[in-house]
Amino acid sequence: MSQTNDRENRDVARQRSHIYGLLATFYRQEVTSDFLRQIKAPQFLGVFSDLGLEMGQDLFQKSEESVLEEMSVEYARLLLGPGRHISPHESVHLPEEEGGTGQLWGKPAVKVKKFIEASGLEYKSEYSGLPDHISVELEFMQHLTLREAQAWEEDGRKGSEFYLNIEKTFMEEHLTRWIPIFCEKVMEETEMPFYKGMAALTKKFIEFEQEEMVDKSG
């Protein structure tokens, strides 16, 4: 491999890491005013509109306070409850032959937790969520791709392969098995352009990643 390719691969990995980080942020919590400011920034809007995603007029016409409130309410309605909501946990969605799914903290949650911990990362003691929350899975990919980028820089293909393999395995065993379906449910359920767009972007990006993975291993 040439150094140019390594550098490009490094850059791609770094960008992918940023995207995973962005997606994880979407799901981790309600939109804050800092985040809202960024969403409303031309750079963000430009990229989104280029992809065919509309953010809607409410963002600009309503006061920041009411926009944030509406977004929080929508976040709770979609992802938290109380009452009917789309659980953002793999265990509730993923089928498993031996059961332990369709519930919180099911067998898939254990698998996610073990996978992540086996990589050397650990859940922070202040993290109060469940181990298989969508934001954790995306964040894990963010970490992996960042390490991949470093590896391209330091060891080229040899070093990056280790991370690519982990990424691929985690993608195949977890993300691709439930996140696209989850996103479809969110897209169907919400009328708010931001969350519809967020779900669409997540789904498309996971699909893109899936294809890229096949290319890379091919």
Binding site: H18, I19, L22
Partner: peptide, 14 residues
């Protein structure tokens, strides 16, 4: 191609 643009947005958010 989108990866770089999206990544930049992500980086800013992060």
């Amino acid at each position: 191609r989108d990866i770089f643009k999206l990544g930049a947005v992500g980086a800013a958010v992060i």
